[in-house]
Computed example of a mutant assay.
Amino acid sequence: MLRGRKALVIGGAVGIGRAVCQAFACEGASVGVADRGWPGEKSSIVAELAASGVEAYPDEVDVRDEASVKSVIQHAIVRFGWLDILVNNAGITSGGAPMQNQDFELWAEIFATNVNGVAFGMKHVLPHMLERGSGRIINTSSQLAHKPAPSHGAYCASKAAVTALTASVAQEVARQGVTVNCVCPGMTDTAMLYKGGASFVEEKLKALPIGRPATVSEIAATYVFLASDAAAFFVGQSLSPNGGDVMW
């Protein structure tokens, strides 16, 4: 489905991003795995992908820093010759707090990572994709953008911003061959889920129709679809693999 395609996954060392790298490689894509830190995890996933027969390499990026994001994208273009797919997946959350107890230094950190990082990625890949007349940008939002949870205002607001930003930019570039969409995962069995606290996880599971969190591979399948030719008519969409948390 993606044979011959060149992809850069920002936030690809662990969790959903790692599964996306694996799924892209399984479909034949070459993959750049970029993240902040996680040196062992980056090395192991690159070795795994290379062993499967695709080109893969690790890279370091801090999505809070525009120059760092620009550099990692330019490196991917030079390394591969071109870039077909960019996944903006880097994100952080917190343990949560009611609004009156919000730590606004942490709030700013969440927005710098979750929103600015996505914006920087789109800004610096678009000139290349628009020049080529083709490209797929896939941003990671969250089901909490559509169904916000109490005491997680910073994370919910940041992901709602990603969803709105995706739709805005998608309208700018769709007629020039570039699609921009986002994935809004529901509860997923990653380390980030449990940062919300045990009570948050317990309450969400009680209300979830499927009764369990997703595996990362179940979420990654949505990214493969959006990166493929089959998704050519998807523009500015929020695809929601969420186990029935929100239905429409």
Rank of each mutant, 00 (worst) to 15 (best):
V216E: 11
P209N: 08
E202G: 02
E202M: 05
S217N: 12
L226R: 00
A227D: 13
A214F: 12
A207H: 05
S240M: 15
T215Q: 11
S238K: 03
A227L: 02
G211N: 11
I219E: 03
P209L: 06
P213R: 02
E202Q: 13
S217D: 15
E218N: 06
R212A: 12
S240Y: 02
K204C: 13
F233R: 11
E202D: 14
P241Y: 09
P241Q: 12
T215D: 04
A231F: 10
G211R: 07
V224F: 00
K204A: 11
A220M: 09
F225W: 12
P213K: 01
A227R: 02
S238C: 14
F233N: 10
S240C: 14
S228Q: 02
V235N: 15
A207N: 13
Y223R: 07
F233P: 03
G236A: 12
A207G: 15
T215M: 05
S228G: 03
E203K: 14
P209W: 09
V201P: 04
L208C: 07
R212H: 15
I219R: 01
P209I: 00
A230M: 13
A207P: 00
I219A: 06
I210Y: 06
P209M: 05
V216Q: 06
L205K: 05
E203C: 08
L205H: 06
Q237L: 08
S238R: 03
R212L: 10
V224W: 02
F200N: 11
V224R: 02
P213V: 05
K204Y: 08
D229W: 01
A207M: 11
E203T: 09
L208A: 09
T222N: 07
T222V: 12
Y223W: 05
F225H: 10
S240D: 11
A214M: 05
I210P: 00
G236M: 08
S217L: 05
E218M: 04
A214D: 12
F234L: 11
A221F: 01
T222S: 13
A207S: 14
L226H: 02
V224Y: 00
P213A: 04
V201R: 00
S217K: 14
V235R: 06
S217I: 02
F234V: 10
P241C: 09
S238E: 13
S217V: 07
K204E: 15
A231S: 14
L226Q: 03
K206D: 06
E203F: 03
F234G: 07
V201T: 10
E203M: 07
A230Y: 13
E202P: 07
E202A: 10
K206N: 06
S240Q: 15
A207K: 13
V235Q: 13
F200Y: 15
A214E: 08
I219N: 04
A207L: 12
E203A: 11
A220G: 09
A231E: 13
S217G: 03
F200M: 12
V201M: 00
V201S: 00
E203S: 14
V224M: 03
A220C: 11
L208K: 02
A230E: 15
F225T: 08
